[in-house]
Design a protein around this nucleic acid. Structure first.
Lengths: 213, 213
DNA sequence: AAAATGACCAAAAAACCCGTTTGGTCATTC
DNA sequence: GAATGACCAAACGGGTTTTTTGGTCATTTT
């Protein structure tokens, strides 16, 4: 009993390590050479295994790609989540986590390419799954927002998910348009954007909803 | 003297009309069939001129594409500019102009495809020029912001260009991500986004800049 | 016994060829 | 002098062959 348990744990551990190794190699290859040009054999060799072993970790090349992306994004999100210290002021977290996330994504070419809309030939079919990953990333923002409300710093009358989506979009834009602009100081841009969202554009005495439309 | 002047004006007028005609035909063809599949001859015939005439209006097919895009965006921007009535409250304008712009872009497939990142094989080389066009569009937002400050509705301590860029990015995101989401009510999203930017996320008693970082 | 392998095969991609189309020019026409 | 369309090199398309590659599975290794 204990033996089989130990064994299965060891097995899972070994399998998981190899699995990770394969997915990392896949992520690197797909990012460097694109989905089509990266070959499964090349990925296998880069991971130090034979091709057959790769197919113990995935169903198909598409599945491999998706798993590699999924893993990168989960790691990315988890890194960000680790920064959310509930003792810190939520408004400060909003900025520091965003900056860290964008820096992190710079080190993840595969994620970055996806967010920037490369691999667009594959995107349509996978959009549902990627939307799922977006929701994953949004959970961090929602957490910070709810923290801010609990801290009495943020308004409680807003739809937290709505606001989170908007902030996520701002971060995306910052990321996407960054590459097209010269002399682009993205922490500064982020700071300006989040500062604006925090304090609002209206003069204090003018607060209220938009009059009409 | 008067004669040559009159003639040249007439010439310019005639040329301009034909030029427009060509550029409109080009925009339609490029949007429908893409840059490569749309042929110059086809565009010429659709504009009711011979191919040689097209080359009186442009230097090359690439230039033709760029001019067509440029013209569409100028028109788009001008339409939006026409809606800026200084007698109306600036916060109201912010929303109504954004909604109208996004509706308008829906009727301009070429512009829309560009903003969504299609034609991506051409984009890198043309980014500088498109950035120029972005600045053009930003002028409208800046105008509204300055109006709001003059009306005593908006804070005057912000960098107007910075804020305009941010609002432009929000609009872009709304546009870009719209297509990937089901049940996406974009005027509602825009309203929520602009409302947030106007009123801010912080509780009124918490105003101030971000404490530290 | 279970995990890992790599030879193997159908299918897809690349390379090649060649007839057709097309971007761009310019002598001619209006 | 503005507009044209015949003209040409170069690029495109598509059909065919060759090469590569995704995916399998009998065999080997641990």
């Amino acid at each position: 009993m204990t033996n089989t348990l130990t064994r299965s744990i060891i097995l899972v551990t070994l399998e998981q390590a190899k699995r990770d190794c394969i997915l990392v190699a896949a992520a690197k290859a797909f990012a460097q050479r694109g989905f089509r040009k990266a070959s499964v054999d090349e990925i296998a060799k880069s991971a130090g295994v034979a091709k057959g072993t790769v197919y113990l970790a995935c169903e198909s090349k598409e599945d491999l790609f998706y798993q590699a992306v999924h893993r990168e994004i989960r790691e990315w999100t988890a890194n960000a989540a680790r920064l959310i210290d509930p003792r810190k002021p939520a408004d400060e977290l909003l900025l520091s986590v965003a900056v860290a996330s964008l820096e992190d994504v710079g080190r993840r070419p595969l994620v970055r390419e996806l967010l920037e809309g490369k691999h667009s030939e594959l995107l349509p079919q996978w959009m549902p799954q990627f939307e799922e990953l977006r929701i994953l990333g949004r959970k961090n923002v929602v957490e910070i927002l709810e923290l801010g409300i609990a801290q009495g710093r943020f308004r409680g009358d807003l739809d937290v998910n709505e606001v989170a989506t908007l902030l996520q979009d701002i971060n995306m834009s910052t990321l996407i348009f960054q590459r097209y602009r010269t002399d682009f100081d993205f922490p500064r841009r982020l700071r300006a954007g989040i500062d604006l969202v925090l304090n609002g554009l209206r003069l204090p005495n003018q607060k209220g909803t938009i009059p009409s439309l």
